[in-house]
Simulated assay, not measured.
Amino acid sequence: MTKNEYGIQCMQEGKWEEAVKAFSEAIEENPNDAVSYINFGNVLTAVGEREKAVNFFKKALTIDPKAGAAFYALGNLYYESEQYIEAKDFLEKAIKAGLENSDGYFMLGMTLLQLDQPKLALPYLQRSIELNPDDSDARFQYALCLAGEELYEEAISQLEKVIEKVPNHADAYYNLGVAYAGYKEDANQALAFFTKALDIQKDHVLAANGKKLMEQYLQQ
């Protein structure tokens, strides 16, 4: 087992000090290996040393300018710091560098949503769920994005897939209620969805408001 492999194993087991030691030794043995710097940055991120982590990811990129994992890690750090323009830049570079995983596409889609660019976010969220169909969080965000672009039939289809996978997803039921109330004009089904959302999450204020409106409408 290499030092990097051992360090990753330590991270998975929450042995942060041992992981730091392993990655430090890996860097000492081979200071021109970008992977070791990326791994060290990841462990620093995990223990909250974000500024130091940035330095290690940037060092990795000086060694390997096409290190997609370093671009991705930097994109995540900037996203968490709400520096969305910088996050977008690094996440785009990660994908251009060949990082073909669902998380990269999802994070770029989420970043574009934060920048109020839902139309641009849509294909990245779509690609994310193509790469990982089991990611219900990505599918839910994709559904919201579709609804925002008034692609309601597809949004409903995606929300239905979310609740198939996560039967207690209150927000998915709420958004189905909104779609059935507004787009489908089916007050009874909308009421059923709002009620289901409240059964799951009793303090869901939006679902409670939706339920009240549907009940008032049906009583007319």
Score class of each variant (00 low, 15 high):
Ile27Asn: 00
Gly48Ser: 06
Glu80Tyr: 09
Thr62Trp: 02
Ala69Ser: 15
Lys15Ser: 08
Ala70His: 07
Ala34Gly: 08
Asn39Leu: 02
Phe57Val: 00
Ile38Ala: 08
Glu29Lys: 05
Gly14Arg: 08
Asp33Arg: 10
Asn76Cys: 12
Ala60Ile: 02
Ile27Glu: 00
Phe23Ser: 06
Val20Pro: 01
Ala19Trp: 03
Val54Trp: 04
Tyr78Asp: 10
Lys52Trp: 02
Lys59Leu: 07
Phe40Lys: 14
Glu80Met: 11
Phe23Pro: 03
Phe40Asp: 03
Gly41Met: 06
Phe56Ser: 07
Ile63Asn: 00
Lys21Tyr: 06
Tyr78His: 13
Asn32Gly: 15
Val54Asn: 07
Glu49Met: 12
Asn76Tyr: 01
Lys21Leu: 11
Pro31Cys: 08
Gly48Asn: 10
Glu18Phe: 03
Val54Ile: 15
Leu61Lys: 09
Asn30Glu: 14
Glu17Asp: 15
Trp16Val: 13
Ile63Ser: 02
Val54Leu: 14
Ser24Tyr: 02
Glu49Val: 02
Glu28Trp: 02
Val47Arg: 15
Gly48Asp: 10
Phe40Arg: 15
Ala60Leu: 06
Ala53Ser: 12
Tyr37Glu: 07
Ala73His: 05
Leu77Thr: 14
Glu18Cys: 04
Val35Cys: 03
Pro65Lys: 07
Leu77Arg: 05
Ala19Tyr: 04
Val20Cys: 04
Arg50Ser: 13
Phe57Gln: 01
Ser36Glu: 05
Tyr72Ile: 05
Gly14Leu: 08
Asn32Val: 03
Ala70Ile: 10
Glu18Trp: 05
Tyr78Asn: 09
Ala69Gly: 03
Asn76His: 05
Lys52Tyr: 03
Pro31Asp: 04
Val43Asn: 01
